[in-house]
């Protein structure tokens, strides 16, 4: 068993910025535990002598010349913004009152 705890899932949810409900935390804990049990088998064959592959087709040195290209207009930039002011994106205060 991989033994994933609810505390762990709550911590992961915090890292992933998702305000899971207690019910979701509880059901996800069970599901994750099962999923992790079955996917942990990758460790059986992942021996130290096997190199990791992060790109399916090996390429390197893909660059762009340092030449200025198109930018978005301010209308395009802000067209999907939930809130904006002063041509900037507006967000709630970053720190809570207790901080």
């Amino acid at each position: 068993m991989s033994e994933i705890s609810e505390e762990q899932v709550a911590h992961l949810a915090n890292l992933a910025r998702i305000a899971l409900t207690p019910e979701e935390i509880s059901s996800l804990t069970t599901e994750l535990d099962q999923i992790v049990d079955s996917i942990a088998k990758v460790q059986e064959v992942a021996t130290p002598d096997v190199p990791a592959t992060s790109h399916p087709v090996p390429l390197s040195n893909v660059f762009r010349p340092d030449v200025v290209g198109n930018t978005l207009t301010i209308e395009q930039t802000l067209q999907n913004a939930p809130e904006h002011a002063d041509n900037r994106f507006k967000v709630s205060a970053i720190l809570g009152e207790e901080q």
Partner: peptide, 21 residues
């Protein structure tokens, strides 16, 4: 002249959100 991963200009002091791609 441009940003690390985009061809938007790397320029100081421009109007807000105008150097963006």
């Amino acid at each position: 002249k441009t940003k690390m991963f985009s061809s938007a200009p790397n320029e100081f002091g421009s109007a807000a959100n105008t150097n963006v791609s």
